[in-house]
Design a protein around this nucleic acid. Structure first.
Length: 491
DNA sequence: CGTTCCCCGACTAGTCGGGGAACGGTGCTCTAGT
């Protein structure tokens, strides 16, 4: 079949199976690359329908697709979405399944077209054995930046994915993410052990419809006042990010008291059910804004978020771009604002340092395996040391790895601070950080230069059209209570 | 790692400063017992 016919057939299939008339940017390129049997890394901006790429491949080739996903809620969403599309041969193989259900799924794994699981699940030998029986058509690493961002100090099983991939017979692989610097891309390909011939499909991280601003405030009190005044002026819905659960709760309460906005907090201190309820209320428009920690956001498909405010700047620009990328997916004008106080830098510094075991800790654990064992249930760093040991990494190497990792984190934080203080076009700063050679011309509605003031009314001049102009592909709204009941019917 | 805040004792009756505590994000899985 010649190229034109193939293209025609892919479009025809897209229309028939998914009901779309056009591919979004990058989708066709990724799918074609996979159909040519080339492992692919896809760096596509948020909201471009990355999951369609592998869904299409699975449906088109009728081969099973295994998706490695970082979060249970993300798997849940994707499974539901596929079921809504009429695909019933889909399963999330995780700890939400009862022992019996899990055994049953594993015995009949070949009945499923799409299998979701977390990297930790691959440690389970029964799971690995069942996957080996399968003729995997495509292995997908969803949110693949997690390999580099979470693997070394938080989710060590991400570091094992390359070995797991090899054990599964080096299947055709697709790694997808919205953000990756050259260094993160190098981490991904190395840790996944991708063949040198892999195809890179990369689009700019730039989101031109998001105005970028940073404001320096002398103290906490002025910061709060500025936040409240912004909330009274900004069109919603919106999102505020915090680096502390405590302050996230406190500010949620303050906003409830001082404004008429409907607001809720979202962080890991809440139960799964509470988090799910908040998320659904936000998606269905019952909440005007969410105050959240970095726990919120991955896999959130809300197209009309108008602003993302950072009450605390994040630890690096990768996270920043991920977080502000949740705004304006409908393509309409949106804004990202960092409220910065000099003391905020210490908060991030603490977080960067304390997440990793220090040399005293390592020495203690090395001398006393009993101390390590008893601590590993409670202490994050002891758990990490245990897992590194299981991977066959010596204490000496661990010390080196953690030291290097700390240095990297500090360097990334320095860049974040440099961004906050950057006097020139912030958009260009981001593009440079992500190694893009392209330079954008600074123009109206791009960003705030230096510390000049910016005019919200002018930026949002066309916002009235915005709120009434929802995109056509909005998923059908569901009553979250029904879903919750379904999820917890056994409890 | 570094700031902030609170307590308390010391020199001289309210301020100075030293010590110490608090601050702090992201999630998977498995197990035992209900």
């Amino acid at each position: 079949m010649n190229k034109v016919n193939v293209e025609h057939e892919l479009h025809h299939f897209l229309q028939q199976k998914f009901g779309f008339t056009e591919f979004k940017a990058g989708q066709e390129e990724v799918i074609t690359s996979l159909l040519n049997n080339r492992s692919t890394v896809a760096i596509l901006p948020t909201g471009t329908g990355k999951s369609l790429c592998y869904q299409f491949f699975g449906e088109y080739t009728k081969q099973p697709v295994v998706i490695i996903s970082p979060l249970l809620s993300l798997m849940q969403d994707q499974v539901e979405q596929l079921r809504l599309q009429g695909e019933k041969r889909v399963v999330a193989l995780n700890s939400n399944l009862s022992f019996q259900d899990k055994r049953q799924v594993l015995e009949q794994l070949n009945r499923y077209a799409f299998i979701y699981l977390a990297p930790e699940m691959l440690r389970n030998e029964a799971v690995l054995a069942a996957l080996l029986q399968l003729n995997i058509g495509l292995l997908v690493i969803d949110e693949a930046h997690c390999i580099s961002a979470w693997g070394p100090d938080f989710r060590p099983d991400y570091l094992q994915l390359g070995q797991m991939r090899h054990q599964l017979g080096d299947p055709l692989t697709l790694a997808v993410t919205a953000t990756a610097t050259k260094r993160v891309l190098a981490d991904m390909t190395k840790l996944l052990r991708l063949p040198a011939s892999f195809k890179l499909v990369q689009y700019s991280v730039d989101r031109p419809n998001i105005f970028l601003a940073t404001e320096k405030l002398p103290d906490e009190q002025t910061k709060k006042e500025r936040l409240l005044s912004l909330l009274k002026q900004l069109p919603g819905p919106g999102l505020i990010y915090f680096s502390s659960k405590k302050q996230c709760d406190e500010l949620t309460e303050l906003i409830q008291q001082k404004t008429s906005l409907h607001v809720a907090a979202y962080h890991a201190g809440l139960s799964f059910a509470e988090r799910y309820a908040v998320q659904q209320q936000f998606l269905t428009g019952q909440l005007d804004l969410i105050c959240a920690t970095s726990a919120f956001g991955m896999g959130i498909n809300k197209t009309d978020i108008r602003y993302v405010i950072h009450y605390h700047m994040p630890q690096d620009l990768e996270n920043y771009v991920q977080e502000i990328g949740r705004a304006g997916r409908d393509g309409q004008q949106s804004i990202a604002i960092i409220l910065f106080n000099e003391n905020d830098r210490f908060l991030q510094k603490r977080l960067a340092f304390n997440s990793l075991p220090n040399s005293d800790e390592l020495e203690l654990y090395q001398q006393s395996p009993a101390a390590l064992k008893s601590a590993s249930l409670e202490s994050e760093s002891a758990y990490l040391v245990t897992r590194y040991q299981q991977m066959g990494i010596s204490f000496a190497d661990m010390e080196q790895i953690f030291t290097q990792r700390r240095t990297e984190k500090l360097r990334a934080l320095q860049q974040m601070l440099a961004y906050v203080n950057y006097p020139d076009c912030k958009r260009n700063f981001i593009l440079r950080y992500f190694d893009e050679e392209r330079v954008v011309k600074h123009q109206q509605n791009c960003c705030q230069l230096g510390e000049e003031s910016y005019d919200l009314q002018q930026i949002f001049a066309n916002v009235d059209q915005v709120t009434n102009n929802l995109p056509k592909n909005t998923p059908p709204s569901r009553d979250y209570r029904q879903v919750l009941q379904k999820l917890f019917r056994d409890d």
